[in-house]
Simulated assay, not measured.
Amino acid sequence: MLTEQNDAQALLVLPRLRVQNANAISSPMTWGFPAITAFTGFMTALERKLGRAAGLSFHGVGVICHGFEPQVANSGYTRSFNLTRNPVLQDGSTAAIVEEGRVHLDVTLVFDVRLDSALIAENERRRLAAEIHAQVAGMRLAGGSVMPPLAGAFQRTPRAQLVTQHPPHLRRLSRRWLPGFALVSRDDLLQTRLAELQTQQPEATVLDAWLDLSRLNYRASPTTSAEADQVTWAIDKREGWLVPIPVGFAALSALHPSGTVAGVRDASVPFQFVECVYSIGQWISPHRIQDIDRLMWRTRFDDTTGLYRCVNAYQPPSTPAAYNPETDLDSYID
């Protein structure tokens, strides 16, 4: 770990990563975009692969999605994953099919990093960014393979950037992240919805609030028509594009010493049974993020409760910002 004396805050941007066959089953109760833990895990794997000799440490990751192509077959309102048949067993019988959800992604990853003083020079930062981009090309992201950009997809091939963090750079970078949507946390809406439900149903729980925000609710309201049975159906309004997301794990058992539990993936490390932790997320346009810290997802672990959780510091604006033609128009001109 770098010392605080020679640390300098910066952003590492890996633009337009094309990921093939990423895991689309993010938890036992959700499917679609990979869990945020897949990206924090990728951050940890990249930091370990670079090693301390690289001179930088990772402290958070932001995710912007540009393309989402689930590998599913549509049949009306029903969707089913495109599955692959496994090879036959030794006795010639057909092996069971294990459901595996896959999705092709086009994402930009933004990392909050600390640079060693030797990397402050621009030429050193460009060299390291190119080296990291080459390392990422051989890694897995959310269980999928990082592929090179399609021929002719871009006029200029996107390149990794390692830039010092200050607002002018953020405004310029956020323009390059368009079109796309950034995933942020909306724990506040979950608590607000819970309070609203409990005014009508005192026995309502956080699960009820989570399910309510995760679906489209149609409600009937009487009309002014002379016929008594006439009603108008409308969908509950939501504050933006809300989605249910898994955000971590909660311990179900004590920490078992390494080698004491059979069938684990790595018997050389301690093992603990866990369950998934859920919350509400929101997809927002990157140009609306004025503070880079509100884009970042960071990991928190509480040893006393056994809770491993990804947290995000996004806060919605209290009031819509007034349009300023001088600054707002400039923000869209490169």
Score class of each variant (00 low, 15 high):
residue 3 T to W: 03
residue 18 R to T: 10
residue 20 Q to S: 14
residue 21 N to D: 15
residue 25 I to N: 11
residue 25 I to A: 13
residue 28 P to F: 10
residue 31 W to F: 13
residue 36 I to V: 15
residue 42 F to T: 08
residue 48 R to Q: 15
residue 51 G to Y: 01
residue 51 G to W: 02
residue 51 G to K: 00
residue 54 A to H: 05
residue 55 G to K: 07
residue 58 F to W: 06
residue 63 V to Q: 12
residue 67 G to P: 02
residue 69 E to S: 09
residue 73 A to C: 06
residue 77 Y to K: 11
residue 79 R to D: 07
residue 80 S to R: 15
residue 91 D to H: 02
residue 91 D to Y: 00
residue 92 G to T: 09
residue 93 S to L: 05
residue 100 E to Y: 03
residue 102 R to D: 01
residue 103 V to I: 15
residue 105 L to K: 02
residue 105 L to C: 06
residue 107 V to A: 01
residue 110 V to W: 03
residue 113 V to R: 07
residue 113 V to W: 06
residue 119 L to N: 07
residue 119 L to K: 05
residue 123 N to V: 08
residue 123 N to C: 00
residue 125 R to G: 10
residue 126 R to K: 13
residue 126 R to N: 12
residue 130 A to S: 14
residue 131 E to I: 00
residue 133 H to D: 15
residue 134 A to I: 03
residue 138 G to A: 13
residue 139 M to F: 05
residue 140 R to F: 13
residue 141 L to H: 04
residue 142 A to L: 08
residue 149 P to C: 09
residue 149 P to R: 10
residue 152 G to A: 03
residue 157 T to H: 03
residue 159 R to W: 00
residue 164 T to L: 09
residue 165 Q to M: 14
residue 166 H to A: 09
residue 166 H to L: 08
residue 167 P to Q: 12
residue 168 P to M: 10
residue 169 H to Y: 07
residue 176 R to P: 04
residue 178 L to F: 02
residue 178 L to H: 03
residue 179 P to Y: 01
residue 179 P to N: 07
residue 181 F to N: 08
residue 182 A to K: 01
residue 183 L to A: 05
residue 190 L to R: 03
residue 191 Q to I: 04
residue 192 T to L: 03
residue 194 L to P: 00
residue 194 L to V: 03
residue 202 P to E: 05
residue 203 E to C: 01
residue 203 E to Q: 13
residue 207 L to F: 06
residue 209 A to I: 08
residue 210 W to M: 07
residue 215 R to L: 05
residue 217 N to S: 12
residue 217 N to P: 00
residue 220 A to P: 00
residue 224 T to N: 13
residue 228 A to F: 04
residue 230 Q to V: 14
residue 230 Q to E: 15
residue 231 V to N: 06
residue 232 T to N: 09
residue 237 K to R: 10
residue 241 W to H: 10
residue 241 W to S: 09
residue 246 P to F: 01
residue 251 A to C: 09
residue 262 A to T: 10
residue 262 A to V: 07
residue 277 V to T: 15
residue 279 S to T: 11
residue 280 I to T: 14
residue 283 W to R: 14
residue 288 R to L: 14
residue 291 D to T: 08
residue 292 I to N: 00
residue 297 W to N: 07
residue 298 R to S: 14
residue 298 R to N: 09
residue 298 R to T: 15
residue 304 T to W: 02
residue 305 T to P: 04
residue 310 C to F: 08
residue 312 N to E: 08
residue 315 Q to V: 13
residue 317 P to M: 05
residue 321 A to W: 00
residue 321 A to G: 14
residue 321 A to H: 03
residue 326 E to V: 11
residue 328 D to R: 02
residue 328 D to K: 02
residue 332 Y to Q: 08
residue 333 I to T: 11
